[in-house]
């Protein structure tokens, strides 16, 4: 069967995969349009930027965790590496593009090293080692004060500018981050649908049979971790230049739990799930602001709600909304 050209909207909508992406894209464009027109205020633009950053994080974590079945808990730490690298490079006078490049490569290399360190061990060890790595990085962000300014964090991080073009306003950043998120989603979507992506799923299902088909499992895992790390770094760089201020607590376990909640709710091993999860949880997150909850207990309230959602999902829908594999 060759690829059949679909030129009919109804036919396209029948194919739920395509319909999902199409509808999402249209809604996204409408929101951006409303923001740019000033009909929606800056707060909406801000939420959309944060969604874009989390989309990149969740879809790239899903590549290793959902598709390849690697229990990688270092994603937020790698996000932090990207953020600090990008911020420090720019603050030391390097160009944005060079900073971005290094901010992506460094987390990619770290991710491969984490995989390398546990390559001979059972898969559970990857979880332990990557979790430990999260703590290690957090304490480095805190204690290497000459570089990171410790708990004070880095402020006045410059805005993004390249080719004589600077991204000043939240709305401009919204457009830029949307493009980055869409490109990331397209890349990762195509990876998962490629024959390499099929191999990733096979690694998750049964390594032994795969070895006997002549596949170099270790190398496949390294590649998956590297790609995932690149995107964690991209998200980190976007975050650093958007908020212009980063501190160690931006890359702490709380964010990791948020990200895991997103994936579990959306469903592992599904790109739609990884995207939908971010949107649902972010909407929930922001709606909580509307409730009359004092700001001091907003954080803990959110965490209780995430915990409840996780329990409900585990009880009633262990594959998440779009997921294809059981949580185990």
């Amino acid at each position: 069967m060759g690829t059949i050209q679909k030129n009919n909207i109804i036919e396209t909508l029948k194919d739920s995969q395509k319909a999902f992406w199409l509808i999402l894209f249209v809604i996204d464009i409408i929101f951006i349009f409303l923001c740019l027109q000033g009909i929606l205020n800056e707060y909406f633009a801000h939420v959309l930027v944060v969604i874009n950053i989390y989309l990149i994080l969740s879809i790239s974590l899903n590549l290793v965790m959902g598709f390849t079945g690697l229990l990688n808990l270092s994603h937020i730490a790698l996000f932090g590496v990207g953020a600090y690298t990008s911020a420090l490079m720019i603050m030391n006078g390097y160009s944005y593009l060079l900073s971005l490049l290094l901010a992506m490569l460094l987390p990619g290399v770290f991710a491969v090293l984490l995989m390398f360190a546990t390559r001979k061990l059972k898969s559970d060890y990857l979880m332990l080692v990557t979790f430990g790595f999260s703590f290690l990085l957090y304490s480095i962000f805190i204690s290497w004060t000459s570089l990171t300014r410790g708990p004070l964090g880095l402020n006045n991080i410059p805005k993004i500018s390249f080719f004589d073009f600077t991204i000043y306003s939240t709305n401009q950043f919204l457009v830029f981050s949307t493009i980055m998120a869409i490109v990331s989603i397209i890349i990762i979507y195509n990876i998962t649908k490629s024959s390499f992506g099929r191999l990733l799923q096979a690694v998750r299902d049964d390594e032994i049979s795969l070895k006997l088909l002549g596949k170099n499992i270790e190398l496949i895992k390294f590649k998956a971790m590297f790609i995932s790390g690149l995107f964690a770094g991209l998200a980190g760089s976007l975050f650093a230049h958007y908020s212009q201020y980063i501190e160690p607590n931006s890359f702490w376990i709380v964010d990791l739990i948020f990200l895991l909640t997103v994936l579990i709710v959306g469903g592992l091993a599904s790109n739609r799930g990884a995207v939908f999860g971010v949107i649902i949880i972010m909407i929930l997150n922001e709606s909580l602001r509307l409730l009359p909850i004092p700001s001091e207990i907003l954080g803990p309230t959110r965490q209780i709600i995430y915990a409840l959602i996780l329990i409900l999902i585990l009880l009633y829908r262990p594959k998440g909304i779009f997921g294809r594999i059981d949580l185990k």
């Binding site: 990876i191 490629s194 024959s195 390499f196 099929r198 191999l199 799923q201 096979a202 299902d205 049964d206 032994i208 049979s209 795969l210 088909l213 002549g214 596949k215 170099n216 190398l219 496949i220 590649k223 790609i227 091993a269 294809r324 594999i325």
Partner: peptide, 23 residues
Amino acid sequence: TLFENLTIRDHIEMAMFNDDQKF
């Protein structure tokens, strides 16, 4: 043991070719 989430076509193709490892 098969790859539960993959099709018959996937199984045979993965066996036949090795360039799926080339990213």
